[in-house]
Every structure is written in structure tokens, then in C-alpha cells.
């Protein structure tokens, strides 16, 4: 299975690289409303995934016959604050998490610094999780904010 995951990641990385999703200019032009491309990309991905996902959920089984794990994520108050902070970072770096890894593969040296920052930010979040729990009504530590 590990090989399958590497293969899927490779295809995903290739598509993110060639579709503009890992391109600083395309991200800025999306946020400047100067280019429809990224909206078309994300919109068409959802337009294909959503109905197929609905059909898969109706059958409720994977290829190996296991019951499908697509339960909704835990709800908490970190979605707005976390989303806003992530948006600021996406704009500054011109990359969201997937493209950070893709850009490193492409040879964009500065992407290594974005990854370092992301890991430090993640580590800091993990370190102060219990202190954020009450004010943001985050789920118990064993559950976490969700594996998105």
C-alpha cells in the first residue's frame, strides 16, 4: 500500500505543479481577482469530487469491501481563526501545504524555508494546544482539531 500512496502523491504533486496551484503568480492573481484559473481549478475539482463522493457514500464500501470512512470532522471554534491565519500565510508564501512540498521538489529553494516555518508553527500549536482548548472550545487532546 505504501507504494500506492507514493504513486497517488506523485500524481497529485505533478498536477499541483502543472496546474498553477504551486505557482506564486497564480496564487496572487487569484487573491487579486485578476485570473479565473485557480477558481476554475478548485471549482472543477469539487464539481467532480462531490457527486462521485455522494455515490461512493451511498454504496458505502471501498474496493476491498470495508465500510467507507467519511464521517464529518469535529466542530470547534478554531475554524475561523485558523482559516484566517492560514489565509495570511498562503498569501505571504504563495503556497498552501501541498504546494510547499511540490515546490521543494521543483527546486524552488525558498520553499524549504516555508516548510521550516510551517513545522515550527505546527510544533508551537501542538505545544500550546491545551491552553487554546478552553477559549476556542477545541476537542479533547486525543481527538484533535481534525486530520485535514
Amino acid at each position: 500500500m505504501t507504494l500506492l500512496y507514493i504513486l497517488l502523491g506523485t500524481v497529485f504533486g505533478f498536477v499541483l505543479s502543472r496546474s498553477g496551484a504551486s505557482d506564486y503568480n497564480y496564487i496572487q492573481r487569484m487573491f487579486l481577482f485578476e485570473d479565473f484559473h485557480m477558481y476554475g481549478l478548485i471549482g472543477s475539482a469539487i464539481a467532480v469530487t462531490a457527486p462521485a463522493l455522494w455515490l461512493l457514500r451511498r454504496s458505502g464500501r471501498t474496493t476491498s469491501g470495508r465500510s467507507l470512512q467519511a464521517a464529518a470532522r469535529p466542530r470547534h471554534h478554531g475554524h475561523v481563526a485558523g482559516g484566517l491565519l492560514f489565509g495570511v500565510g498562503w498569501s505571504i508564501a504563495g503556497m498552501c501545504p501541498g504546494p510547499i512540498f511540490v515546490n521543494i521538489g521543483e527546486g524552488k529553494i525558498y520553499a524549504v524555508a516555508a516548510l521550516a516555518g510551517a513545522l515550527v508553527g505546527t510544533g508551537f500549536f501542538g505545544a500550546i494546544y491545551t491552553r487554546l482548548q478552553a477559549p476556542l472550545r477545541l476537542p479533547p487532546l486525543a481527538v484533535g482539531t481534525g486530520e485535514g
Binding site: G82, L85, G89, I100, G117, V120, L132
Partner: peptide, 22 residues
């Protein structure tokens, strides 16, 4: 510049429990 952007990305996505993909 990228390190600072990364800090926001790491902290923000984990607080929100996901990013553009999830």
C-alpha cells in the same frame, strides 16, 4: 519572508484542522 509565511500556514492549518485539500 517564506519562513514567516510558513509559521502562519503551520499554525493556522492545524488550528483549523485542515487546509485547501482537507
Amino acid at each position: 519572508w517564506m519562513f514567516v509565511g510558513g509559521l502562519f500556514i503551520g499554525f493556522g492549518t492545524r488550528l483549523a484542522g485542515g487546509c485547501t485539500s482537507g
